[in-house]
Simulated scan of single mutants.
Amino acid sequence: MKLQDSVIVITGGGQGLGRAMAEYLAAKGVKLALIDLMPEKLEEAVAACKAAGSEAKAYTCNVAKEEDIEKTFKAINDDFGQMNGLINNAGILRDGLMVKHRDGEIVKRMSLAEWQAVMDVNLTGVFLCGREAATHMVSNGDQGVIINIASISRAGNMGQSNYSAAKAGVSALVPVWAKELARHGIRVMGIAPGFIETEMTASMKAEALEKMTAGIPLRRMGKPEEIASTAAFIFENDYLSGRMIEVDGALRL
Rank of each mutant, 00 (worst) to 15 (best):
L3P: 02
L3Q: 06
Q4R: 10
Q4I: 07
Q4P: 00
D5L: 07
V9K: 12
G14P: 02
G18T: 02
M21Q: 14
E23N: 09
A26Q: 02
K28A: 00
K28M: 03
L32A: 12
I35K: 05
M38V: 15
E40G: 02
L42D: 09
L42E: 10
L42T: 02
E43M: 10
E43P: 01
K50I: 04
A51P: 00
A52R: 04
G53K: 00
G53H: 00
S54G: 13
T60G: 12
C61F: 05
V63Q: 13
A64V: 05
K65G: 02
E66W: 00
E67S: 13
K71N: 14
T72L: 06
A75I: 06
A75N: 11
N84M: 08
L86H: 02
I87W: 05
I87E: 10
N88A: 13
N88Q: 08
I92L: 14
M98H: 08
H101N: 13
R102H: 13
D103W: 01
G104Q: 02
I106A: 12
K108P: 10
S111C: 10
S111Y: 06
S111R: 05
L112G: 01
W115I: 10
A117H: 03
V121W: 02
L123K: 02
V126G: 07
V126H: 04
G130I: 09
R131S: 11
E132H: 06
A133M: 13
H136V: 02
M137Y: 01
G141P: 07
Q143I: 11
N148R: 06
S151G: 04
I152E: 02
G156P: 06
G156E: 08
G159F: 01
G159W: 04
N162I: 08
A165M: 07
A166S: 15
G169K: 01
V170Q: 11
P175H: 03
V176G: 00
V176I: 13
W177N: 04
A178L: 06
R183W: 03
R187A: 11
V188H: 04
M189G: 01
A192I: 01
P193C: 07
G194Q: 01
E197R: 10
E197Y: 07
E199G: 15
M200V: 09
A206C: 00
A208I: 13
T213S: 12
A214V: 02
G215M: 13
G215I: 09
P217M: 04
G222P: 01
E225A: 03
I227V: 13
A232M: 04
F235A: 11
S241Q: 05
S241E: 07
V247N: 01
D248A: 12
A250F: 08
A250S: 14
